[in-house]
Nucleic acid binder design. Structure first.
Lengths: 155, 155
DNA sequence: TTATCTGCAAATAATTTGCAGTCTT
DNA sequence: AAGACTGCAAATTATTTGCAGATAA
């Protein structure tokens, strides 16, 4: 089935297969949605985007797929204070580069910022090591977000 | 009504009244729950604790109260990846001191850590200023959390 | 007094799950 | 063939809302 030969074939599929999971059209559609529709997508966003390419996909499958990808570390799941989970590619071949989020609590706009990212990452790495040692955690990810009002909402 | 004369009378009630909101037994019970039952409480946790002191309180009121307190900046709301919001006193007279969270994604244990907090706060402050200037945001709060597996869950 | 609060029950909205049929490997 | 994956619809779960009565100021 040639659908497996997309540009994802080299990077994600191996990871999926490696865990004994399968590559399917639905999963491919989700992968595609994630890589073409930008960051911080809700499950609904991913569903809509995936449906375009694979109209039969069900919302439940999208949820199950995103959960799987998150478990495999390919996708990071986070939330920005509304009650919807958000998903985007985690660092890796597809990531747009590491960034953190700046969220407007009024209009819900999300800014991906990379300013200060180096200092942040340095500190995060250092903190991670310290916490891992002190508390015996194996740390896998972090969330760092700022909340406030954007210029427009501030008045 | 003497219920207003608790140890909260001096710090929170003024803030509440200042916004034209009222001090009520229900709100007092929530305040009390927050200050006696530790950090990162779910709405349900707060509800149960408040019920002890004020059995007639309704869950909806707890939600409304927590929302109000959050809006007034007295309480900080965050989530740790399960689908329940968590609440705790924000910095201020009641805070147990500024801390960040380390969350086990398996057993859901939450560790409040204060290690590195000074470096973190310094960086956060600096980042906040930079972001505020560059993106025109008025930043009010931040979330910084690490996720991983605790020692017990790591095997 | 009167606007704010309340508890309750019903309504939402996101996410999950059961299941029988369909595919990947 | 066997287990993994699917779509659908029904079930869950956290949170919100409408409303009539109660209450703080």
């Amino acid at each position: 089935m040639k659908i497996h030969k997309g540009h994802h074939g080299n990077c994600c599929c191996g990871k999926i297969r490696g865990f004994g999971r399968r590559i399917t059209p639905a999963r491919h559609a989700v992968l595609d949605a994630l890589s073409t529709r930008g960051e911080h997508l809700t499950a609904e966003d991913v569903f809509k985007a995936s449906s375009r390419r694979y109209p039969n996909i069900g919302l439940a499958t999208v949820y199950r797929t995103l959960e799987l990808f998150t478990k495999l570390g390919m996708v990071s799941k986070f939330d920005t204070g509304d009650d919807k989970a958000r998903y985007e590619f985690a660092d890796g071949p597809h990531a747009k580069g590491h960034h953190h989020h700046l969220v407007c609590t009024s209009c819900r706009r999300i800014v991906d910022y990379t300013d200060f990212i180096k200092e942040e990452m340095d500190l995060l790495r250092k903190t991670e090591e310290g916490l891992a040692k002190k508390y015996g955690f194996k740390i896998n990810s972090h969330v760092m977000q700022f909340y406030g009002l954007c210029r427009d909402c501030a008045r």
